[in-house]
């Protein structure tokens, strides 16, 4: 079941990074940098448009040709938005939902993944396929039946409804299962011989070894929850419960929209993600995959 190329882990292993090429390092390196710099600029152009639009008047946001530098800088957009909508409440709700859903998804997802990756029992693969199968159904197709269940449970218009809805998705289980498959079985066998229970193996061996995967799962879940619009829209009616994405959409009217405010809000809403992203980054550079056995 496991990949055979991974040898049992040594006690001390060097970081799992691709070593520097020996020949013509400077040429290659320069080329890589050039590529990355060009690409980063290209990639950030829409973001630049967002920032520029956040400093304009609504009527100036869309223009032909695009005006990259606003005729007049409306910095007051960034103060005005706090008066226009209860942004503090929305941000607090978004942070709360994203954190809770991420924590639950990571916890239950990695726990279930151990069952799918490291324990052999009949019916396991069929069950796993059921998980996979549900991802294949578009949410638009089952949102109404789901809503009815929630309504019957009296959970509509609570944060709990969204937490229950999004914390137990198949995504986390799947991601973690795939990662666990790359961890050599020899590690857990050795631990078993040492008398550790399966739960002990999960908590003391596997979990610490899977920090990069946990970090990416946490990051992606956080971002997806943070940016989710349709879920909160359908389930949260009370304005006090709204998230930042709903707040941004409240600038879209029946016939027109206040695009400068939307872009101002979008810029503000990216900042927390940026923080999370920079925090999560350190788990991708440590090369901890094989150095966990101490």
């Amino acid at each position: 079941m496991t990949l055979t190329i991974s040898p049992p882990a040594p006690v001390e292993a060097p970081p799992a990074e691709v070593p520097r090429p020996r020949r013509r390092p400077s040429v290659r390196r320069a080329f890589a940098y050039l590529l990355l710099v060009v690409l980063s600029v290209a990639v950030l152009v829409p973001f630049a448009w967002m920032v520029s639009s956040s400093l304009k008047l609504d009527a100036e946001v869309f223009s032909v040709p695009i005006r990259w530098i606003p005729a007049e800088f409306h910095w007051d957009n960034f103060t005005r938005i706090w008066e226009r909508i209860p942004l503090v409440t929305y941000l607090r709700n978004s942070v709360f939902l994203s954190l809770v859903i991420t924590a639950l998804q990571v916890l239950t997802g990695s726990f279930a993944a151990y069952g799918f990756a490291k324990v052999r029992f009949p019916g396991r693969d069929a069950l796993f396929l059921a998980y996979l199968a549900t991802i294949a159904v578009p949410w638009q197709a089952y949102m109404v039946p789901q809503y009815i269940i929630m309504q019957k449970a009296g959970l509509v218009n609570t944060h709990l409804s969204l937490i229950l809805l999004q914390a137990f998705g198949a995504f986390g289980v799947f991601l973690m299962r795939q990662y666990y498959l790359t961890i050599p079985d020899e590690l857990s066998e050795a631990a078993r011989l040492d008398g550790l229970s399966e739960y002990g193996i999960w908590a003391r061996i596997i979990l610490p070894l899977s920090k990069p995967a946990l970090a990416s799962l946490a990051l992606l879940t956080f971002v997806n929850t943070w940016n989710d619009y349709m879920g909160p829209f359908i389930y949260l009616t009370d304005n006090k419960l709204w998230t930042i994405q709903l707040g941004l959409r409240s600038f879209v009217g029946l016939y027109d929209a206040e695009y400068a405010m939307i872009m101002t809000g979008s810029v503000l809403s990216v900042l927390p993600i940026l923080v999370i992203f920079l925090l999560g980054q350190k788990y991708f550079v440590q090369g901890i995959a094989t150095s966990g056995m101490k």
Binding site: P15, Y179, T182, I183, Y283, F284, Q286
Partner: peptide
Amino acid sequence: ILYLAGLQTIPGELY
């Protein structure tokens, strides 16, 4: 991001 996490599992000594 998913690939970056996956790359961390490859033991350096293989390279």
